[in-house]
Design a protein around this nucleic acid. Structure first.
Length: 689
RNA sequence: CGCGGGAUGGAGAAGUGGUCAACUCGCUCGGCUCAUAACCAAGAGAACGGUGGUUCGAGUCCACCUCCCGCAACCA
């Protein structure tokens, strides 16, 4: 694929925003593929650096800080630590994971901006912009709400009305106000900002991307093309805000660098931090960002395409001296149980929670996310899928083959690698098959086809299972023990090959397998070879590589999601509209009373009905049937409670019983029912009014 | 509204003009028993989102349409 032979590779993974945790969508889209690729290159002994870090500027963290009553720094500290820790525990092998609030970054980004400014690469534009008349803060279109001029809906945004879909500008809104401070009036103030004139670089971008990088993924190429077919507008690189990197220009008080300006520079400043800390090992940062022999790769999600393919390259080009990305493998999005992943709705599987709920199952998640990777279209993660991939692939195919090989070796040869005898055609065929795997995996990885590459690695185990079944060493042992030596020798070499092939994908399992095989180290070039384990080498005690995941574990996760859904519904609950007014006489017609429940039981053959006996102050009391059985599993808990009931309801037969009235229940937001009761003890039969 | 990406058996997913639409999981039926009821073999199952067109021939090219996602707050 790559025509040029590069000396080294710089790999970046999108900087997660320090306003929440990392979830499976981030992992599947960016971090797992990036990590696979980097581990592969390292195993090939290539020079590679893997850069990550938290993006800690921008507006949302300031809003969160305000809401929680803590400082912005406290917010970003909290999430930075959390994200960093969970990446580590998950085995995302960043060479550095730093942050955009670091001193090095502030200075670097500031200098970068200043260079553009001094070279005259930025345009100064003064504009009237909306701001909150009370607080004075500037507002983006999206943070202005008002009444839609077309459909009259309330709560239309400054850029679009969600109700009718009309594209709007804030000027068109009726009664515009600050979304975060409803009611505050707006005014307009002139403000000066610095813009990057993208149009100036349009021809260069067209040549570089549309002509020279036709091999980029179609989603990336198509998105770039659609932008490049229009006239690119200047893009503001500064904002009126007090959180961020101050604009290093005279007269720019109260202005900071736009997050999208400073965040990608974080890739570079983090590299610098890494190199400064250990120059012997890492050399200079310039070597990773400015040397023509370095290949630059950005792993991102599809929403970041224009920033990484157009804006950041223009920033680097305008600055001068930087290399351009050689590829930007952007993934599509992952859904969760058929619903969009959403931070605000808490609809996600959070990495930090997964690591607690599913201890030592990092590789299972890595495997499933890769097997289901949203490489060409949005995909769906379901827990059932997760269980299936684990149980029928990792356990049944990979883990099982390894276990067969190790157990048989233990049984027949005390865990010592036997001598290889003369090869038969069945052996040679298996060996020939698994020699192809190396090339196939390499080709696929170089094309960023991780899903297929992993499947190809799994083929090794399939080959192994087929081979061992065909050779039946457990049978041959009885007649020809010498032959069993060769069979198991081949199986063990296959096992060692599996450890190598899966290292980029399943690093924890490969480490464990390497330990079981009692191997100190291995490298990619050994993949496909038949002498990784020498005869008479002692193996360690066999252990299972993967465990079956039981239904109960999956059900617990599904329940967790179900609870989230419930909580979301509760949050977005809106009461039913109030009914038409009635006069007092109408109300008076209803005779509502207090009753004491003296007995309560399920009505046979009915799913819904409970049969109450109520003390209503009369000698015999009355019987009332109520359709709330589904919400009171144990009817006994209602006995002794005072309830409100309509006493002058016309009696009605249900399931053969007569119901004399109606017990009042509240209908909860989710449709569940709750019997009403009194707050103090009241004599049965008392009037409610 | 516009622009970009996508829609292939129950699920994932190859395939860009021409052998029975590959492969993985699931399913059915055999076999095996070394192995975590794991393994191996065989089989069933897709008129390739819809309509129309180009062509000797289309999942593959063209037109129109439908649905999903992104570009547009949070966000991979």
């Amino acid at each position: 694929m790559t025509q040029k032979e590069y000396k080294r590779t710089t790999v970046t993974a999108a900087l997660p925003y320090a306003n929440g945790g990392v979830h499976i969508g981030h992992l599947a889209g960016v971090y797992v593929p990036a990590d696979i690729y980097v581990r592969y290159l390292r195993l090939k002994k290539r020079d590679v650096v893997f850069i990550g870090g938290s993006d800690e500027h921008g507006v949302p963290v300031t809003i969160r800080a305000k809401k929680e009553g803590i400082t912005v720094q406290q917010v970003v500290d909290r999430y930075h630590e959390m994200i960093k820790k969970s990446f580590e525990d998950f085995g995302i092998s960043f060479d550095i994971y730093s942050r955009t609030t670091s001193d090095i970054h502030h200075k670097f980004a500031s200098d970068f901006f200043r260079t553009l400014y001094d070279k005259g690469e930025l345009e100064e534009i003064t504009e009237e912009q909306y701001c909150d008349a009370v607080t004075g803060e500037f507002l983006t279109d999206r943070n202005i709400v008002g009444t839609c001029p077309r459909c009259g809906a309330e709560g239309a945004y400054g850029d679009q009305c969600e109700k009718c879909g009309a594209t709007l500008s804030p000027d068109e809104l009726i009664n515009p106000t600050n979304k975060n401070n409803p009611g505050n009036p707006l005014t307009k103030k002139a403000t000066k900002n610095w813009y990057l004139p993208l149009g100036k670089w349009q021809d260069w971008l067209k040549q570089w991307i549309l002509e020279e990088h036709k091999e980029w993924r179609s989603n990336v190429y198509g998105q770039c093309k659609s932008w490049l077919d229009m006239d690119l507008q200047p893009r503001a690189m500064t904002r009126d805000l007090d959180w961020g990197i101050p604009v290093p220009v005279e007269g720019a008080d109260g202005k900071v660098l736009y997050v999208w300006f400073d965040a990608p520079i974080g890739y570079i400043s983090n590299t610098k931090e890494l190199c400064d800390n250990n120059p012997e090992k890492w050399g200079t940062w310039q070597q990773w960002w400015q040397d023509e022999d370095t290949r630059l790769l950005h792993f991102i999600g599809k929403d970041n395409i224009v920033f990484h393919c157009l804006i950041f390259p223009v920033m680097m080009k305008a600055h001068g001296g930087y290399i351009m990305p050689e590829n930007v493998p952007a993934n599509e999005f992952l859904n969760l149980e058929d619903d969009k992943i959403s931070t605000s709705r808490n609809w996600a599987v959070w990495l930090h929670e997964y690591l607690v709920d599913m201890p030592n199952k990092q590789d299972v998640l890595r495997y499933v996310l890769t097997a289901n990777a949203p490489e060409t279209k949005d995909n769906n993660f379901t827990w059932k899928d997760y269980q299936e991939h684990n149980n029928s692939e990792l356990v049944a195919i990979y883990g099982n083959f390894v276990n067969r090989a190790l157990q048989l070796t233990k049984k027949y040869f005390n865990g010592i690698v036997p001598e290889c005898g003369a090869l038969q055609s069945v052996d040679e065929q298996a060996i020939a098959e698994f020699k192809d795997v190396k090339n196939n995996v390499e080709t696929l990885l170089e094309q960023f086809k991780f899903r297929e590459a992993q499947k190809e690695a799994m083929n090794l185990a399939r080959i192994g299972n087929r081979y061992i079944t065909e050779c039946e060493p457990w049978k041959v042992w009885k007649t020809d023990p010498e032959r069993v030596k060769t069979i198991l020798f081949v199986c063990l070499q296959l096992t060692a090959n599996l450890a190598i092939a899966f290292e980029p994908f399943l690093p924890f399992s490969s480490a464990k397998l390497r330990q079981l095989l009692n191997l100190d180290s291995f490298e990619w070039e050994q993949l496909g070879s038949m002498d990784i384990l020498k005869a008479s080498h002692q193996l360690n005690e066999p252990e299972l590589l993967f465990e079956k995941i039981e239904d109960s574990v999956i059900e617990a996760q599904l329940q967790k999601l179900e609870d989230t859904k419930k909580a979301n519904e509760a949050e977005t609950y809106e009461p039913e509209p109030i009914k038409e007014n009635v006069d007092f006489e109408t109300f008076e017609k209803l005779d509502i009373r207090v009753g004491l429940v003296t007995s309560c039981e399920k009505v046979k053959k009915s799913k819904k009905l409970l049969k109450f006996h109520i003390d209503d102050g009369t000698k015999d009391g009355r019987t009332i049937l109520s359709g709330i059985a589904a919400y009171y599993e144990d009817p006994q808990e209602l006995v002794g409670k005072q309830v409100l009931f309509v006493a002058n309801f016309a009696p009605r037969k249900m399931m053969g019983e007569e119901s004399q009235g109606m017990i009042l229940s509240a209908v909860n937001y989710d449709g569940t029912l709750s019997v009403t009761t009194t707050s103090k003890d009241v004599k049965p039969g008392s009037i409610v009014g």
